[in-house]
Each structure stands twice: as structure tokens, then as C-alpha cells.
């Protein structure tokens, strides 16, 4: 079988995989909403457009908050924050994890031991405690600060996985072959080792993306999120703070909660679907 027909086969299974189709469709819907959503609403997320909380109506599609802010506007702007956190936070974590994983796995020995120690230390640091301290110092926190923080704390899992994979690949003869071809180490890592784990890296990135979104939502919800913008987690935080639950303003917290659940769920479904596509053993026959 040639690689071309292998690719064709992969595509065939990808298009046929229900999990993948459902997951990607949901994600595409939310991405589309993020892009065109702000055009659909005449307001800004923190504009006071009316007085008090009103249930969904033809004017305010998802109702308004206690302060008279439009929930739909807040959700579409909040989605943007969610995706930024996912891409920047998840991406940064991925990048650091790759760097450390490849370095440790490829060189081994003392380099590996040192990096492994660092990884384990980051792994056991209580993220929440650190964030509380940071929050105390930073008066104004943006979505980017939050993303960076998530990125810098979520990489150890990536590093571990990548290190293990690199370890098993680097002892293969083709790596030795590349070395005696005078190839530089970084080139060997990126052109010989990394391509062999591409499908795996894609899966890791999806998990990181989802993980970052979830972490951000948690931080926002307990009030450690951005102070100068809106996010889905922050909406829920406000809803709880202003007793939306008791007052029965369900339209205030259900939409953001549903959006987060749907996005993260869709990511996981996509992940499982991709896993089945890449790994023939898992394919449903």
C-alpha cells in the first residue's frame, strides 16, 4: 500500500466517522458564531441596554442580566475570549511541552533528569494557590494574562507524553542513520522524529485546547478571571454573584454554561473520532 492510498484511506475513514462529523460540526457552529456574532448584535457586551433582567424575547434573544446587559451579546463576545484562551493557552502549553519533551527524550541522561524534575515540580504546584497570589498583585487582568498563566502551567502532561514517544523513536535505526548523515539534532527532531508522531500531536493539541478552556472557565467562575473584558466563565460568575439562580433568571447562566460544555464536549468527541481514524485497531467495522 502506498502512502497516497494510505492518506486516501485515512480521509475515507475520517469522513465516515460519525463522532468526528458530530464533533467538528458543533465546533464549526461555535467558530462561525464567534466570527459573525458581533455583527448580529447592535450592542457592546457591557452596554446597559435596558433596565433589569428580562427573559428571552424577540428583541433580546437570550434575555438580559440584572443590570440590563444583553446576554446574547455577552455570549458571542465571551466565545471569542474562550477561543483565545484555548488557542493561546493550549498552544503555549503545547509549545513548551514539545520543547521540553523533545529535548528530554532526545538527549536523555542528565538533561532528561533535570527536565523531568522541573516537569514534576510544575505538576505538583497547586495552580489555584499561585493564581490567588498573582491575582492579589495584579489589579487589572486581561484575557491574555490568563492565557499565559494557563499555558505556563498546563504543559507538563504534554512534555511527559512527548518525551515517552521521543524516547521510543530515537533508538530506531533511522535516527542513527540521520545522525551519521551529519544532520543537526534539531533537524533530526523536526524532520525525522516529529513527523512520526504527527497524528498523536494533533490529539494532544485538541486535549490541551479543551483543557485550557475548562481551566479558564473555572478560574473565571471563582472570580480569578479577567477584569477588563467578558468571558463565558465570568458571565456565570456574575450570575451566581447576583443570585440569578434564586431569582430564576436561568437565561443568564444557562447559555454560557451550555456553550462551554458543548465546545469542550465537541473537542473530546473529535478527539475520540480522530483517534479511531488514526488507529485502525479502534475503527468500528
Amino acid at each position: 500500500m502506498t502512502a497516497r492510498s494510505q492518506k486516501h484511506e485515512m480521509l475515507f475513514f475520517a469522513l465516515r466517522n460519525t463522532k468526528l462529523r458530530v464533533g467538528v460540526s458543533i465546533l464549526l457552529f461555535f467558530i462561525l458564531l464567534t466570527i459573525i456574532g458581533p455583527q448580529l448584535t447592535p450592542y457592546e457586551p457591557n452596554d446597559f441596554v435596558t433596565s433589569g433582567a428580562f427573559p428571552p424575547s424577540s428583541e433580546f434573544w437570550l434575555g438580559t442580566t440584572t443590570f440590563g446587559e444583553d446576554v446574547f451579546t455577552q455570549v458571542v463576545y465571551g466565545l471569542r475570549a474562550t477561543f483565545i484562551v484555548g488557542i493561546v493557552g493550549g498552544g503555549l502549553g503545547m509549545l513548551i511541552g514539545l520543547l521540553i519533551g523533545f529535548t528530554a527524550g532526545y538527549w536523555g541522561g542528565i538533561v532528561d533528569e533535570t527536565l523531568n524534575m522541573l516537569t514534576n515540580i510544575i505538576l505538583v504546584i497547586p495552580t489555584l494557590a499561585v493564581l490567588l497570589i498573582i491575582a492579589a498583585y495584579l489589579k487589572v487582568r486581561g484575557i491574555l494574562t490568563e492565557s499565559l498563566f494557563i499555558g505556563f502551567t498546563c504543559w507538563p502532561w504534554v512534555a511527559r507524553a512527548v518525551r515517552a514517544q521521543t524516547f521510543s523513536l530515537r533508538v530506531r535505526d533511522f535516527v542513527d542513520m540521520a545522525r551519521i548523515s551529519g544532520m543537526k539534532s534539531y533537524k533530526i527532531i523536526f524532520s525525522e522524529i516529529a513527523p512520526n508522531m504527527m497524528s498523536y500531536l494533533l490529539l494532544v493539541f485538541i486535549l490541551q485546547f479543551g483543557g485550557a478552556i475548562l481551566t479558564a472557565a473555572t478560574l473565571d467562575f471563582i472570580g480569578l478571571g479577567p477584569t477588563n473584558t467578558i468571558s463565558l466563565g465570568l458571565m456565570m460568575n456574575m450570575a451566581v454573584l447576583w443570585s440569578a439562580l434564586i431569582l430564576g433568571s436561568w437565561w443568564w447562566f444557562i447559555p454560557p454554561g451550555l456553550a462551554i460544555t458543548a465546545i469542550v464536549g465537541a473537542l473530546y468527541i473529535t478527539n475520540v473520532g480522530l483517534d479511531e481514524v488514526f488507529n485502525p485497531k479502534l475503527r468500528e467495522m
Binding site: A3, D173, F174, S181, P195
Partner: peptide, 26 residues
């Protein structure tokens, strides 16, 4: 050098003549 396992000496996701291209590039 040439090693024992011919199949492990090649990166499975690339064509075999890549070993020549590497020599060319390097």
C-alpha cells in the same frame, strides 16, 4: 555504517530514496 534491520533504518513515513536526498542536502 549500515545496520542490521533494513526496515528500521528507514523512516517509515517517507520514501526510501529520502536517504539520498539527505546526503544531497547535507
Amino acid at each position: 555504517g549500515v545496520f542490521q534491520d533494513p526496515f528500521s533504518s528507514y523512516n517509515p513515513i517517507f520514501k526510501a530514496d529520502r536517504v539520498f536526498r539527505i546526503i544531497h542536502d547535507e
